[in-house]
Design a binder for these strands. Structure first.
Lengths: 344, 344
DNA sequence: CAATCCTTTGGCAGCGCTGTCAATAATAGT
DNA sequence: ACTATTATTGACAGCGCTGCCAAAGGATTG
């Protein structure tokens, strides 16, 4: 009898086939197109595979079929807890599917992104998920040549490479600032850090809302390229106050900055919302628990990751979505920090 | 001339070889053992590969060599922001190496862990990183049969499967509670959620410290199986207060719970630290920024992920560490929330 | 100068699986 | 009953690369 077992003791498909009394081809077919097998053989291959504890060799499969079951995921940062929610959705959606997530970190660098895309292309992924819509022409070209479904997440915009699931950061910021204006706030600060493309668009939304109310003043806007954190939020707020002591509200580009601002207010005995109103962005869990509770713009991060991967998996199976661009929207969560002032 | 280019237009190694004027074997050797090539050929293969933009086919390589350059990483949760720091270290350490991280989520389930380990084994990873030390006998058996370096992280303990990098959660908790006792606190609550093995050991450390001071009382201990969050922290603290209104300090199993406790104190006008001292665990960034700043036990999560992967990569290269178990320790960060009371 | 050893190179047989095509069996149509 | 289809199955040739072994030089040694 010919060699059945591989050197390493691993069970090969040939062994399953011979135990089931079928050809290698039929055994292989059991895993690819089980419906093409007669019920009898299907059953026999299944039980043989089960009895032997067969696990397919993915490398051999990938080589022979020229396809993989890998979904490449490009994320700009692992630090940012926004992405940890997205990733939860990503992994949850991939769970139970045959697909494997291959996560890589671009560190907010478009060159790194280009390099990683080339690397992915060489491995023929089944699908690809990329963050944002600001890919370089080179990156777009690489993706276009990849012949696998691709989904862009976090934002929506014109000219999707393939599919998109996100929301309008500009509109979300606009609505937050419009809310503050509606509450009677006039001198609304903007606190931004690590000014990535999405944050830039939030700034754009802020500008649009302020300009519409004829309240826009450059001195209200304070940004820094350094990464965000709660401490940075406190420092930024302090700096803003030094520059524009008359502000009566701040829109923070994320919740860490907002929490840092709240702490700084507590430290300086500034009453929130009576002296200063605060609105954050993302609506992390702690915003509702803070004292006072902090207003924020809820974004659907988990759903974004989950739906993006689900769309990808469907597209890999040939089911193109009806609409390739999905806008998950946002919701303004108004809490104590941006409520009307107590009457004096 | 024989087929050079693969159907998909991908450049194969044979093409590089012929452009460089060497045999396929030599070209292959350039990527495996470049030092075995004569400088001249090495140079020619390098420039040919570069000119053609050659990217190796990893599936073919894996199949032929019976090895992969994949490091499997098993993490129990993607929600827990403790792990996002670990993962940052993991990905940073893998960056620049030929190794690829394959991340999977066990959802705190040992059965899931077992299943995932079997799946990994079938793909012959180059190395493996698993969380914690509470693997089932089955899981240990699978790992032992895997013939690749394995590192356990988050904790230290006896009988490493192979290597370990972590710290003693029990000692860390002990030192936090001992600190509170040293500050004159007598009725110290314990707030725990999602009681995973590491949290259990923190409880053990708390018990040890309290018992040593003859202060241990069951009513001080409040735990819940539900996942942690800031809100849950607030609720737990409220419940603890209802049960033991006389407590003068709380040790929280993580910083989210601690922050929730602080907020709940603010809500109830309980003075921190005068009425209640608070100590958290992990020392997330916001702890220092809170008002009052919150004491915590600093754990080296980033370093844990980074060092674990570095050890793995070294071990794959044949460089076994001098000591297979690395204790990264912890540091008690004493801040305002556990300072002495103001004199009355 | 021959014998020996080391360095460098190439030929070749797979790695475990899938895609293609042909063969056969079963079913339907006339 | 006989042919046309369709449903099942199997044989076989690779997928692109590496590991092994042998060959060819070159250097070294006695």
């Amino acid at each position: 009898m010919a060699r059945q077992r591989t050197k390493s003791g691993k069970i090969r498909l040939a062994e399953v086939a011979s135990l089931a009394g079928v050809s290698l081809t039929t055994a292989s077919r059991f895993f690819r197109t089980p419906e093409a097998l007669s019920p009898g053989k299907r059953e026999r291959v299944a039980s043989a595979a089960d009895k032997l504890g067969y696990e397919p060799d993915l490398a051999a499969r990938a080589l022979a079929s020229q396809r993989t079951e890998v979904i490449g995921v490009l994320i700009p940062s692992l630090t940012n807890n926004v992405f940890s929610d997205v990733l939860r959705g990503v992994y949850d959606a991939a769970d139970g599917s045959p697909f494997t997530i291959q996560l890589v970190n671009t560190h907010y660098s478009v060159l790194q992104e280009e390099k990683l895309l080339r690397l992915f292309r060489a491995q023929r992924p089944a699908g690809l998920m990329v963050t944002g819509i600001n890919q370089t022409p080179n990156s777009r070209a690489v993706m276009q040549s990849m012949d696998c479904p691709i989904v862009q997440i976090m934002e929506t915009g014109p000219e999707p490479i393939d599919m998109m699931v996100g929301f309008s950061h500009s509109d979300a910021a606009f609505s937050a600032v419009a809310h503050l204006i509606a509450q009677g706030r006039k001198r609304i600060g903007f606190l931004g850090a690590r000014m990535d493309p999405r944050v830039q668009r939030r700034l754009e939304g802020y500008r649009r809302a302020m300009k519409a109310a004829a309240l826009l003043e450059p001195r209200f806007i304070l940004t820094t390229p350094i990464p965000t954190s709660v401490s940075v939020g406190g420092v930024l707020f302090g700096d803003l106050l030094a520059r524009a002591p008359d502000i009566d509200a701040v829109f923070c580009i994320n919740d860490d900055i907002a929490l840092g601002t709240l702490f700084e207010c507590q430290r300086r005995q500034i009453a929130v919302p009576d002296d200063i109103a605060i609105v954050g962005f993302n609506d992390l869990e702690f915003m509702a628990a803070a004292v006072p509770s902090l207003s924020s713009v809820r974004t659907n991060r988990y759903e974004m990751g989950r739906d993006a991967i689900a769309m990808l998996i469907a597209a890999i199976a040939g089911e193109r979505p009806a609409r390739p661009v999905v806008d998950l929207g946002f919701e303004l969560m108004v809490r104590q920090s941006s409520m009307p002032r107590h009457s004096p």
